[in-house]
Design a protein around this nucleic acid. Structure first.
Lengths: 180, 180
DNA sequence: AGGGGCATGTAAAGAGTTACATGATTCT
DNA sequence: AGAATCATGTAACTCTTTACATGCCCCT
């Protein structure tokens, strides 16, 4: 059982959903932090049902196949809770962008400044996105509601983007200072 | 050509190395941010040599096979620089830990506090690690030296861990506040 | 009439991890 | 005597992405 298994269960814990719904949610998983393609989700949902962690209801679909609506079972919910409360080993911090930055000594000032400015713009957009998201959140959500979790996770994303923005601005200033 | 290709080239740009050296550097790539196993590195080095981006020199090895020392070629350096200066599309921010946090509404107060405290401890260790690294850096490194890049990348890591630590402390306080 | 959204699936290829395999030297 | 380090490689497996494939309904 991979992270995807539980990321799907976490979606189902919020309510019944089709594979299409879950794929849509995982296209831009703001505040929930997992992505996957539908080609990975459909087989995983079938395994979930086979394992008894989700139930399926079929209805007429728009295409040649029936629409399948999945619902989390008590077993599935228990498995999700058990997974969620165990600590995760820190993942390898693989970042192509930081590898590029580690080549900064090979680039000239303009190339480096261009790279940094792109990162600055990206981070600024991220800050705006998460600020909007935070503004839309209930300030004191019910303890047993998904929005309670969002009130915790959205500030991580916001803090992360803010830190990236500050760093990019500092790095640009640093490169400009050394240029002279 | 994957990120691994260029991450290896970035190592070779610092000087000739064996596959073993690169695997060791990528076991804990502090400030450079890519990890890989030797089983991935050895074939990739062979492809690099085949492509003309690295040269190989064989010498007697400690085991049954000769030791191969790889050196970056002018073509390899040019390819690395070209890659490094092009912006990277933002990667999917997949994080198992944040998926767990998005299940916070399913956990009771003690389970959630335990999860958060583990993250706090992890972040605190990270801050200490990067502070030590930063302390060991030259404050004004030569522009065309790998340490110049480290002076840029180490503060990203430090800032990231500081942000995580602040967030974890805030989240713990938030959970404690709502507990009462 | 064509494009986009809804809805499901499979196939192929690439990326990454874990395990298997060998063998000399050095340290405890 | 056994473990760790140096040094290389392959095999099997899992995870992820990209592409192929179908077909209805709604909007312009």
């Amino acid at each position: 059982m991979s992270t995807l298994t539980y990321a799907i269960l976490a979606e189902l814990a919020r309510g019944p959903a089709t594979g299409y719904d879950i794929a849509a949610a995982m296209r831009s998983p703001v505040g929930r932090y997992w992505t996957a393609q539908h080609s990975q989700i459909y087989p995983e949902l079938a395994r979930l049902a086979e394992r008894g962690w989700a139930g399926v209801a079929e209805s007429d679909g728009p295409g040649p196949r029936p629409t399948k609506t999945y619902t989390i079972t008590p077993d599935g919910l228990a498995a999700l809770r058990a997974w969620a409360r165990t600590p995760e080993p820190p993942p390898p911090p693989n970042s192509p962008t930081t590898v590029k930055l580690s080549c900064a000594w090979l680039l000239d000032d303009d190339e480096l400044a261009g790279l940094l400015d792109g990162l600055r713009a990206e981070a600024a957009a991220g800050v705006a996105r998460f600020e909007g998201l935070l503004a839309g959140l209930d300030s004191e959500p019910p303890r047993d509601d998904p929005t309670f979790a969002a009130a915790l996770t959205v500030p991580i994303g916001l803090g992360y983007e803010r830190h990236r923005l500050e760093w990019a601005e500092w790095a640009l200033a640093e490169v400009a200072r050394r240029r002279r």
